Computed example of a mutant assay.
Amino acid sequence: MSPQPGRGRWIVLFVEVVLLAVIAGAFLWTAFVGNRSAAVAVMPSPTPFTLVAPTVIPLTATDLETQIAAVYREAGPSVVNITSRSISYDFFFNPVPRQGSGSGFFYDTLGHIITNYHVIADADELQVTLADGRTLPAQIVGSDPSNDLAVIKVDLPASEIRPLPIGDSTQVYVGQFVLALGNPFGLERTLTFGIVSALGRVIESPNQRFIGEVIQSDVAINPGNSGGPLLDLSGRVIGVNSAILSPSGANAGIGFAISARTVQRVVPVLIREGRYPHPSLGVRVIELTPQRAALFERAGMRLPVTQGLLIAELINGGPAAQAGLRGPDRLVRVGNWNLPVGGDVIVAINGRSITTSQELLVYLETETQVGETVQVTFIRDGREQTLPVTLAELR
């Protein structure tokens, strides 16, 4: 019996629908798999992070906790509590005893301990409390208020000292896990944990100069943490905790640490010489701004630039004077101002643009040393010139 025409058409239509569904499904599957493969192929690799980071980042919370605990076990015995005592006198010349505390850590097996200058400043007596509870007298080996660093020393057998390794702070990156070990409010060997918040900060030093290359972190730092180490997850020192920014004087999540690069530059000199020589051009300058340039215009002196450092005074016999830079030749009264005029305007050092006195101090401090010759670019009579200047020690 021959098939019915209507039924055959339905069968053919059904087969066609099934075939179309199979073809469409295959197409979608291929597109999905292909796109997924392509996405995997172009996905950024995590390799750059592991190349930049000085440590291997744990993959799980448990791994991270284990690593933090390991750093505490290894670094804890190297961190000390420093107590400073001094005597001051009141209006009636009655002695008033004063006491302060801070933190420090062993730098070598000779008993040298790194801390902040402001921890030991004006101390008549220093005592160091070790991790095992022993208290030892300490002597100041060297100090540098301009970098807020100091080295003190205790007499202890080398076999009982575990120095902390100094890391490479140039490899530190924002977001990196860091730890602080110290003695906040006298609570010995307190560990706190956080991340690097920013790099290259500039803070004021105890002697009103500027400290560059400073590491900012959100690690909890409080009074007593000063001088303690800022550590990476491998237990290496990447900074020395020095200051906080806080309206209340307690932790507000903004802490600053002197970088390990600064430590490596300054500490060996403090141990060898007891002080650190700071390079200087031998000039006093005025920062030029458009507003200050307008003051000069009112005095009839139109400056060739509105940004830079106008030499207001040359130190007699100083590096800049010996090199041939020119200072002011007269003072002009404008309102309440006595403006020095006629001096050169410094605009760059070694090709690095310099527009503020802070930039000048930080550059000389972090990139140069006493006795080094730098190329100073300046504006004189509307023309840009460059002279070599050999830096001398700041006096």
Rank of each mutant, 00 (worst) to 15 (best):
I140S: 02
A158T: 10
I161N: 11
I161P: 14
P157E: 10
S143V: 07
P165D: 06
L156K: 11
T170L: 09
D144H: 01
S146F: 02
L149F: 04
Q171I: 00
P163F: 08
G142N: 02
P145C: 03
E160S: 15
V172I: 12
T170C: 06
P145I: 07
G167E: 06
V172K: 06
L156W: 05
V151Q: 07
I140E: 00
G142P: 04
I140Q: 02
A158R: 08
I140G: 06
G142W: 10
R162D: 13
E160W: 10
V141E: 03
P157G: 12
P165G: 11
D148V: 01
P157S: 14
R162T: 15
I140W: 00
G142T: 03
Q171H: 12
K153A: 10
Q171R: 15
K153D: 08
S146P: 03
V141Q: 01
I161S: 15
V154T: 06
G167L: 05
P163R: 08
P165H: 11
I140N: 01
D148H: 05
A150T: 05
L164Y: 15
I161A: 15
P165W: 08
P163K: 10
D144L: 00
I152S: 13
D168A: 08
I166F: 04
S169P: 05
V151I: 13
D144Y: 00
D168W: 01
T170S: 14
T170N: 13
V154S: 06
I161R: 09
P157F: 05
S169H: 07
A150W: 00
P165S: 07
Q171A: 11
V151D: 05
Q139M: 07
G167K: 09
P145Q: 03
G167Y: 01
Q171C: 02
P163D: 09
N147L: 10
S159I: 12
I166E: 09
I152R: 07
G167R: 09
L164K: 14
D148C: 02
V154G: 01
E160V: 12
I166W: 02
V154D: 09
L156C: 14
V172H: 10
T170M: 04
N147A: 15
V172W: 03
D155P: 04
S146W: 01
I166M: 11
I140T: 11
A150Y: 00
G142M: 03
K153N: 12
P157D: 13
D144E: 02
A158D: 10
E160A: 15
T170R: 15
K153W: 04
I152G: 08
L156V: 14
D144I: 00
S146L: 05
S146G: 04
D155G: 14
V154P: 06
D155W: 06
D148G: 01
V154Q: 12
K153Y: 11
P165A: 09
G142I: 08
I161H: 11
Q171V: 02
S159G: 13
K153V: 11
N147K: 04
A158S: 15
D155H: 14
S169K: 09
I152D: 12
R162M: 12
S159Y: 03
I161T: 13
G142K: 04
D144W: 00
G167C: 07
S146A: 04
G142Q: 01
L149I: 02
I152W: 06
D168S: 06
S169N: 07
A158G: 12
Q139Y: 03
S146N: 13
